[in-house]
Design a protein around this nucleic acid. Sequence first.
DNA 1: CATTCGGGTATTGTCGACAATCGCCATGGT
DNA 2: ACCATGGCGATTGTCGACAATACCCGAATG
Lengths: 251, 251
Amino acid sequence: MVATAESVVEQTTIADRVCVEIQTAIIKGEFPQGSKLNEPMLATRYGISRGPLREALRRLEGLGLVRHVPHAGARVVTLTREELLEIYYVREALEGMAARLAAEMMSQAEITELYALLEVHAEQVKAVAGRAYFQQEGNWDFHYRIVKATRNPQLVQILHGDLYHRVRMYRYQSSQQSARPDKALHEHRRIVDAIAERDGELAELLMRRHIRSARRAIGEQLSAEPLSAAIAGIQELSPHTRSQTTSEVIA
Amino acid sequence: MVATAESVVEQTTIADRVCVEIQTAIIKGEFPQGSKLNEPMLATRYGISRGPLREALRRLEGLGLVRHVPHAGARVVTLTREELLEIYYVREALEGMAARLAAEMMSQAEITELYALLEVHAEQVKAVAGRAYFQQEGNWDFHYRIVKATRNPQLVQILHGDLYHRVRMYRYQSSQQSARPDKALHEHRRIVDAIAERDGELAELLMRRHIRSARRAIGEQLSAEPLSAAIAGIQELSPHTRSQTTSEVIA
DNA sequence: CATTCGGGTATTGTCGACAATCGCCATGGT
DNA sequence: ACCATGGCGATTGTCGACAATACCCGAATG
């Protein structure tokens, strides 16, 4: 029997479904950082038993979104700015390598698509200077394409299977947006140029510089203690409308 | 109440204990790569129920040692040489960054200890040219100290919490050993020199070169199809005494 | 003789209940 | 008034059993 397209119907298990549900809830901040995730409550909330729920929690623990202590239960991780900065060091190293490999591996078609993506971004930057959420997603798309182009599943796994969720959570909750998307766009363009020229060394250098500048932008908004404020604002599940702090944080 | 030393008695749960037991069994090759891990068998083998066992398996899946498909059970991952090479690209990027950060962060005491460690390694290299297992562990110790010195828990987690186990499994089962430990030792020495001089850029360059050469050494032993032979040899739980392939694989 | 269909078996997914442990609060002592 | 201690409630860890699904093998048919 040939493998039909519908034979790949995603065989979903309850634990898996609940896992992504809780995951999005955590990223959206419906479960505040540091809040306790007691099993009976969640089990009744999602209408399942504690068995699959526990597996979902272990999985989330593997994703780094939940921390578990033996007889005290699971809590949503509290992502401090220090941890976010640590992650950005990892991203600098890994995505720098990704850019280098992408310059070697990326197909011409992929490069063309990447340029097209930059055009879309350019329009978004020009058109709506306010609505930066799409911008963020587009930014992630850009970085993801480069990482994917490396043909290195390990790299993809680490960057977009482990780190991605935590960074996304922080971004989502602190509503950290790009204050200077035009600058980021320019940096993106030059990175793609280097890749198109098959200059892996330059691509790595530019990508590292790009992410490094984003890290520095994050590090500079330290005195405003934005995250703890965000946590306090979210604690009661109230929509947080913090003043979006300055920054050119986009990477 | 002050925190006594014995208040840190590791509160261990059955799932945790079985997790490490299975983990070591997988690394040692008692469970061959690709072999099925059916739950009733393992449950009776370790004298526990299927509940904790499933959690242990999910945890091992998070560690990348086990792959799980929804209604077909869990299998030990098959680590191809391609994947190992992919991991070495990640290591090159990450440990290069680690060396750079270590050059900035490492205390003088740590540097002294690192030099002492190199002395021990030098004696081992000189004394027992054959028994390379200790050498491997020592090699890991060296790299771990540098990574730890970065004060970047994310880096430590990825390198020694995720990647470490898989590389160790490959190494253990293919009995890949250092054919030229003296060369590796020399490279180690120069890396520490750079760190001692607080030359992060040089430390990163040297570390990347060090790991890159190890990756190339792995990549060059391709035609000997060593891993599949090792798997075949292990399949029946028989001690595999393959001829240890050439290589200067040490990183 | 190859192929496909069907049933049987084994394994996984899920559930509810019991036991062990932890945190909290009241009570008593110093 | 403060601290230690005991009990109580709640939550986690563990277990056995049931239901659902997938794999395997034999039989029937072209």
